[in-house]
Design a protein around this nucleic acid. Structure first.
Lengths: 162, 162
DNA sequence: TATTGTTATACTCTATAACTATA
DNA sequence: TATAGTTATAGAGTATAACAATA
């Protein structure tokens, strides 16, 4: 290994947080994808279930908007989730063009499983920190997100970066 | 907005760092991609230039291995960068199958531009924090990366998550 | 026979556009 | 005419496999 610090390396050192965030972001995402994959789900599908659980009666358009997914993707994801008995489509009473989506009992149970997986995943991911440090890290990241104009849980990065 | 805390929402709250990391990771990555895109470069190409700058004479295979890129991708990226006069391919003297890659003067100048962009990007990204907090955030993230077995700069997330 | 770089191809995924039914 | 959901399709991007040169 060469020990001299080239200009390139120095700029790289001054560039730490960006690299760490991108690398840890993809690491966290792929770890989570692997875990929920064992339940036959993808992260965007989990995002759909989570949002439907919080706001039942949501339309597919609204889901697509909130999660940053293509409407045509929401259709096929909803097909899968409905076929697996995790959610129901009900035609809207006032506007019969829309489907109102809701979790089934099975869907709620699946979300409880996912909550357990998520808690365990979170703990594994932050095993290097103690509770105080974890809280402080969360504070830092939330402040950065707020300052950057990022709404938590909205457009959570499922769509490809163009 | 519903103010009661459902089990789903509680699990979501306990799940903060994962979501923050993935969301901020894609945010940081897309911001950087946009900036270097104005120079006609993609993030993996920047990664190639950076690594070649640090370790001149690297082969395309070694590049692919270090950055987590497909060898066939390295070929087309190197084609672009060579055509733009940013790097040179020289046949290896001992093993004439390999190309030894090196930056041209123009390539080094481009890397200096990128270093400026990177420093500015980093400052913008962490504008919500003061210097002490920025240093502490870096420490937290480096410790997490080390504990998770992530080598800084190696396989920096260019490849798609499978 | 194995490996580097390259090219060609098959495959997946994404985004867009067309279609229906309601409004 | 416009919108929600759906389906079909074109385009982009990815991974794999085949190929030439060298070891």
């Amino acid at each position: 290994m060469n020990e001299e610090r080239s200009p390139v390396e120095e700029s790289h050192a001054r560039f730490g947080i960006h690299f760490l965030l991108t690398q840890l972001g993809t690491h966290a995402a792929s770890g989570f994808a692997e875990r929920v994959g064992e339940l036959g789900l993808t992260p965007p599908q989990v995002g759909m279930l989570r949002l439907i659980g919080v706001r039942p009666g949501l339309s597919q358009q609204a889901l697509a908007e909130h999660l940053g997914l293509l409407p045509s993707k929401v259709v096929s994801f909803a097909d899968d989730l409905e076929r697996d008995g995790l959610l129901t489509r009900t035609r809207g009473t006032r506007d019969r063009r829309v489907y109102e989506l809701a979790l089934t009992d099975r869907g709620r149970a699946r979300m409880d499983e996912i909550a357990e997986i998520a808690t365990e995943h979170e703990a594994t991911l932050t095993a290097a920190l103690n509770d105080d440090e974890r809280a402080q890290l969360g504070d830092f990241l939330r402040r950065i997100a707020a300052q950057q104009g990022i709404t938590p849980g909205v457009h959570p990065g499922y769509r490809k970066i163009s």
